[in-house]
Computed example of a mutant assay.
Amino acid sequence: MLAIGLVLNTLGVGLFCWAIFALAVYALPFFVALSIGMTAFQNGAGVFSAMLIGTAGGVLTLAVGQAAVAITRSLTLRIAIATAFAVPAAVAGYQVAFALSQIGMPSLAWREILACLGAVCVGGTTWTRLTAFAEPRPLELAGLVENPSHPVLPVATREG
């Protein structure tokens, strides 16, 4: 029985950690949706209407953020948008890692170290997932590519 409990606990913690990393990108849209929904409810909207308005706000935030990162050519703007999504995810990762480290760590210093490591990992994952759809244009940004339709390194052809 003890072995089954240990295996199931390990699987549960692993599933929980997978969910944290998979849902980290949605920390900012969730916060926006929750804020808009609560504001709508406090201003007289019904429960269903407030949930609908909040969901629409969160979806719009995510769609606009991902589209802006993918479309914009300014590296500074991309960094700013990705940071706006990564910071709330890093804060959430810190809180989750700190809460999980309280289970088995008696030392406060080690809990803080693990929580900071969790924040960096979750924030980095969010940054990577958000910028995954952005087309990298390092040569185009520097003004080195005059005709982007031709490949930078042409393929060698074999004559024969």
Rank of each mutant, 00 (worst) to 15 (best):
Q66N: 14
Q66R: 08
Q66E: 13
A67E: 08
A67N: 12
A67H: 13
V69L: 06
V69N: 03
V69Y: 04
T72G: 09
T72D: 07
R73G: 12
S74A: 13
S74L: 10
L75T: 15
T76W: 13
T76N: 11
L77C: 09
L77R: 15
L77G: 10
A82I: 00
A84S: 07
F85D: 00
V87P: 02
P88K: 03
A89H: 03
V91T: 05
G93C: 11
Q95N: 14
Q95I: 07
V96N: 01
A97I: 09
F98E: 11
F98C: 07
A99F: 09
L100E: 04
L100K: 08
L100Y: 05
S101N: 14
S101R: 07
Q102L: 15
Q102C: 15
I103R: 13
I103E: 14
G104V: 14
M105F: 13
P106N: 12
S107L: 11
L108K: 13
L108P: 03
L108V: 10
A109H: 11
A109P: 09
A109M: 12
W110M: 15
W110G: 06
R111S: 01
R111C: 06
E112I: 10
E112W: 14
I113H: 05
L114G: 04
A115K: 04
C116R: 14
C116K: 13
L117G: 08
A119T: 08
V120H: 03
V120L: 08
V120N: 01
C121W: 06
C121T: 09
G124K: 03
G124M: 06
T125A: 11
T126C: 03
T126N: 03
W127E: 03
W127V: 00
W127P: 00
T128Y: 05
T128Q: 15
T128I: 10
T128V: 11
R129T: 04
R129Y: 00
